[in-house]
Simulated assay, not measured.
Amino acid sequence: MLLLTCPCCGAEADETELQPGGAAHLTRVGPGAPDEAFESYLFHRENPRGVHIERWRHAHGCGKWFHAARCTRTLEVFGTYPAQITAPPQPIRDAIAAKHPGWAWKEGK
Rank of each mutant, 00 (worst) to 15 (best):
G50I: 08
F38W: 08
L26E: 12
D14P: 09
Q90I: 15
P88V: 03
H67G: 04
E54D: 10
R45K: 15
R73H: 10
A37R: 15
S40A: 14
M1G: 03
G50D: 10
A68E: 07
Q19P: 00
Y41W: 15
R28M: 10
A13S: 11
I53L: 13
K106R: 12
P20R: 09
I85T: 11
T80C: 06
A83Q: 13
M1F: 02
G63N: 08
H25N: 12
F78G: 04
G79Y: 03
I96N: 01
G63T: 05
P101W: 00
L2K: 02
W56I: 01
L75I: 09
W65E: 06
P91L: 08
Q90W: 13
T27H: 09
P20T: 09
K106M: 05
D35Q: 08
C71F: 08
V51L: 15
A11L: 13
W65N: 05
G22C: 08
R93L: 14
M1P: 00
E36C: 10
H25P: 02
H60K: 15
V51F: 12
T27L: 10
A87Q: 14
C9R: 05
E12H: 01
L42I: 07
A13G: 00
E107V: 03
T5D: 04
K106C: 01
P20V: 12
P48L: 11
P34D: 14
A98G: 01
L75S: 14
Y41R: 08
C9I: 00
P89A: 13
G63F: 05
A23C: 07
F66T: 02
Y41L: 06
E54H: 02
P91M: 10
T80E: 02
E54A: 08
C8T: 07
C71V: 03
G10W: 00
P34N: 15
P34G: 15
E39H: 14
E54Y: 03
A97S: 12
G30L: 07
P89Y: 07
N47M: 07
T16N: 11
M1S: 02
H25Q: 07
D14K: 11
E76M: 06
T27F: 02
G63S: 06
W103Q: 03
E12Y: 00
K109F: 03
I92H: 02
R93D: 01
W105E: 04
T27I: 05
A69E: 05
R57T: 14
T74Q: 04
G102N: 11
T27V: 11
H100I: 02
P88K: 13
C9P: 04
G102P: 01
T5V: 07
G50Y: 09
P48Y: 04
D94F: 06
A13V: 01
P91T: 11
G22N: 10
V77F: 04
K109L: 10
P88R: 14
Y81A: 12
F66K: 08
K99G: 14
F43A: 08
P91R: 13
P91Y: 05
D35G: 09
G32A: 08
H52G: 04
K109D: 12
A59G: 01
R73E: 13
H52A: 10
Q90A: 15
D35M: 09
R45S: 12
L18E: 10
